[in-house]
Structures are given as structure tokens and as C-alpha cells.
Design a protein around this nucleic acid. Structure first.
Lengths: 257, 257
DNA sequence: AAATCTGTTCTCCAGAGGCGAACCCTGTTC
DNA sequence: GAACAGGGTTCGCCTCTGGAGAACAGATTT
């Protein structure tokens, strides 16, 4: 739908891909039925049926009278994800405190498949609602989290991501020129924090600082608030300091495995 | 490993099953590598490699320098699960309040694949730690949640579950005789709540009440606490009332779709 | 009871996918 | 710096899988 899933090199397993297409459809439709899915996905009923049978057997989906839905096993899997990310608890504490301190939205994100994925989100007492949700993804080039991570990534990976990026214009201020991005990344690397001045969502300004472990970036922390409240001075001054402090706290409390 | 996944009727898709085996191994091992997984799962390296490639392409797993791990997309999927369960917010509120009121652990669970799965868990201020976690599963016959759900299920489904149950003795008090279970289920149906008197975990007593929507059970709410604190009177009196009230609150606030 | 929905089962054949070996690449050891 | 060892990746073969479509079976509707 959006952009074609680039195929690095050969051989993905077709039936597994179909299975995940089915799973995706079950995620997004409300309790779909066999025929519904068959129509939507353009496969025969028998094919869909077999896949649903298989997924049900794996206890990933559940059959209810009115159709299929995801099973709660997915929640259990989510627990495992959090367990697998190094120092999840430390991150939670630091982000909570940052949200508390600033009153805005504080988040932690990390790079996956060339995008930022949100791992944790905390709301301060005057925080505005944002569309972002835990597990969601955003482009690297239009978010403060993304840019701060990008600027500290090894240059090979950095280029790879930039090259493959879509550079979709999300707001009038979105950076759409790679050259322009590289410039900013250098700047960020120097001063230690990145900003997003309504580049991803109109009316929203953010600051982010990278979290490093040894030589590599493991993610970044950010604060986001409405442009009306977040002045230039505040953004580059107190807020920038706060996120950097939070990033530091995480770094210091990180136990290497 | 535990009990063989009974095959209802034919044709599950083999490669999809393998894919989920791989996924499971990635869940449980800490950043496994190709060869590691190949050894563990008894498949050739190339097979595993293809599966990992596919799963990575689906952005379900992520490759890091030291091995593969689950991706944060799983967290996003978990959001969808919660969205798909009717009235998640209502449940959260009711369970939170129940935990608050009693000071113990309060939970909401529902039946999936013949077991209880925990959807939400709240801790009261004097709550003991229990092993259960959101997304986890427990037998129907040894938990108050399970029994309360079971007793209000249509008798066909009830029998089906009981017949297929393993009746593993989890503690000395676990019910392992179907006849005994049926007796208790009738009792539960009459009085409207179920108890678990150290039948699932030693030292832990629980009360649960079913949550119904129209004619069918959609799940159950429970409170769990240490046997030392939960006397018979308290269990069958105040606590039983509390869980029933909480169940009722959920029922009343349920918007039918 | 005919019609029209479902979901399920059956059969058939192209081609997919699992295996094993060969290959490559990175880091290590003399 | 050559040889080795450890991974990951690729290749080609052959079998048997899995997808399509039609036929079948329930459930509801007309």
C-alpha cells in the first residue's frame, strides 16, 4: 500500500507472508469472517480457511461466533518484547520523571527497520494528546527522536537509512532534502540534542537526546509539546537540558549484559 | 512439550507452523543466532535463515549485531488486541477500583482455547506478588476466574473444555476429577461466584464473578490474596460481594456493538 | 422448499520450500 | 599473512506442500 517492501535478496517464504497478511487483516478489521478475508486479500476461501486454522492452532487468533480476533497471547508476547529490550525499567522511570518534570509528553524510541518505534510514553500533567502510541512508527527524518538517533548511528547505517527513506512531506516544515538532513545531523552530533519544529505534526515541537551505550546509540528520549507553549528559548534551553539529563540517567543506570 | 496440540481436522500449513516455532524461540531465547536456532529447532540452517528473513521482512523481528529479537511492532499489535476486546476501558476502571477497595490483586480474565487468559491486572496497596501476568494463561478448573466462566458457558462448550482439560494437579487441593468439577460448577452457577482455595497456587485464595453480556459470559473478575489474610467469612462475604459488584459495574457499562 | 448465505472438505498439479553442500566473510591463531 | 574456524548466505535439487476451485454441508432467509 504505502511503499513496496524492498527485497534485499531472494527467498521469503510465500505461505508465511500470506499468513501475516491474514494476521494483519484480522488486526485491522473488526472480527472478519473467512469469506470477508478471502475477498479482501484476493485468495480463495480454502486458502484463507487453512491459514486461519493454522493461526488459531498457534493460538495467535481466536474464533468467536461473529468472526476472528487476535488472542491475548499477543499481550504475552508484548511482555517478552519489553523483557528483551535492555533496561526497560530504567527507561520507564526516567521517562516518567521527565514527563513529570516538564508536564509534557515524554517518550523513548529506538530505531527499527529504518524508522523510529516508540517503546514507552508518559504524559505530564498538562500534556496534549498526540497520535503516537507505543509500538507505533514514525520516519527518522521528521522526528526529533529519529534525528537524534540517526546522528549518532555509524555512518554506514546512517547512509543506508537516509538512502532508503521516503522523505514524505508531512508538514510544510518537514525536511525533504537529504543534503539538508545531513547538515542538521552534523549539528545535532555536535550539540547533543535534536529538535523537531513542527516537522512531523503541525503545531508540535519536540526535543530529543540520544541514549548511548558504549559507542553505539540504543535509542533516544524526547519531550513534545504544543508550539504555543514551547518557545525557542525554552526548547533550546531548559527542555534540551532536561532531555539530555534524562538520557544521561538512563545511560548511567544501564547494566550491560 | 506440555500436551499435544490436538488436531481438530486436517491441514495446518507446515511452513507457517515452522515460522511460529522460530518466532517462539526468538521470544524465549535471548537474541539467538541462525545456527543456534537451527540446532535448537532441528532444522537446517538454510531453512531457519529463510524464515528469519521472512519474519524480519514482516517487521516482526529485528536483527541486531548479537542476534535476533522481537520488534516493537508486537507492542502495536498488543494495542490492537486491547482495542478488539469489548469495553477494555470499562474493565480497566472496574478492576482498578476493585484492587483499590480490597487492597489485593484484582484481575479480569476470559476464556481462550479452553484456558483462562488474563487481560488486565491491578495491584492493591497490600497486594502480594503473584506469578500471573497479563496475556498469561491458566487452567480453567484450578482458578476462580476459570470456574466462574466455565459455570456460565453453554453446556456444549463447557463439556468440550472439561473433556479436553489435562487436570494436572497443581497443588494438593486442585480439583482433578471431572465429576467433582461439575458439582462445583453447579454450585457456582447458583450462588453467582467461584472460589479458588489454594487450588492453583499454594497459599493463594481467590474469588471471582462472571461478567455476562446478554446470555453469554464474556469473562470474569477476581480478587486474589494470601490465605493468611483471606478468611472463609471474608472470602464468602465481603470479598464475594465486591467482585460481584465489580462484575456488575462492567456489565452495566458495557456498550453493545 | 428454493434460494442464498456462510464455512468446510476434496482433489489435483504447479511450484514452493526444506535440505545439504558449497560458498563467503569476519575474526583468530599460529 | 596464511591457514583455520565460526558464523551467515547462497545454490540447486526433489519432494511434497499448499493454493485454487468446485463440490458439499449447515444455517438463515424468502
Amino acid at each position: 500500500m504505502t511503499n513496496t517492501p524492498r527485497n534485499r535478496t531472494g527467498s521469503r517464504i510465500k505461505s508465511v507472508e500470506i499468513a501475516f497478511t491474514v494476521l494483519d487483516a484480522v488486526r485491522k478489521n473488526d472480527r472478519p469472517s473467512v469469506t470477508e478475508l478471502a475477498d479482501e486479500l484476493g485468495h480463495s476461501k480454502s486458502t484463507i480457511h487453512n491459514h486461519l486454522r493454522t493461526l488459531e492452532n498457534e493460538e495467535i487468533i481466536v474464533r468467536e461466533t461473529n468472526g476472528y480476533r487476535l488472542s491475548l497471547q499477543v499481550l504475552d508476547m508484548a511482555n517478552d518484547v519489553r523483557d528483551q529490550v535492555a533496561n526497560y525499567d530504567v527507561i520507564v522511570d526516567a521517562v516518567d520523571e521527565l514527563a513529570d518534570e516538564t508536564g509534557e509528553i515524554a517518550q523513548f524510541g529506538l530505531e527499527e527497520h529504518g524508522q523510529v518505534s516508540y517503546l514507552y510514553k508518559a504524559k505530564g500533567n498538562q500534556a496534549v494528546e498526540t497520535a503516537s502510541r507505543v509500538g507505533g512508527k514514525q520516519p527518522m527524518y521528521s522526528t526529533s527522536l529519529g534525528k537524534s538517533i540517526l546522528s549518532f548511528l555509524p555512518s554506514s547505517r546512517q547512509e543506508e537509512i537516509v538512502t532508503e527513506a521516503a522523505f514524505e512531506r508531512k508538514t510544510p516544515k518537514t525536511i525533504t532534502d537529504p543534503a539538508r538532513l545531513y547538515e542538521e545531523l552534523e549539528e545535532i552530533a555536535e550539540r547533543g540534542y535534536a529538535i523537531d519544529d513542527e516537522e512531523n505534526i503541525e503545531g508540535l515541537r519536540c526535543v530529543a537526546a540520544p541514549v548511548r551505550s558504549g559507542t553505539s546509540v540504543v535509542g533516544a528520549v524526547s519531550v513534545s509539546g504544543p508550539a504555543s507553549r514551547i518557545t525557542d528559548d525554552y526548547l533550546h534551553g531548559e527542555l534540551a537540558e532536561s532531555v539530555q539529563r534524562a538520557a544521561n540517567v538512563i545511560e548511567l543506570n544501564t547494566k550491560f549484559s
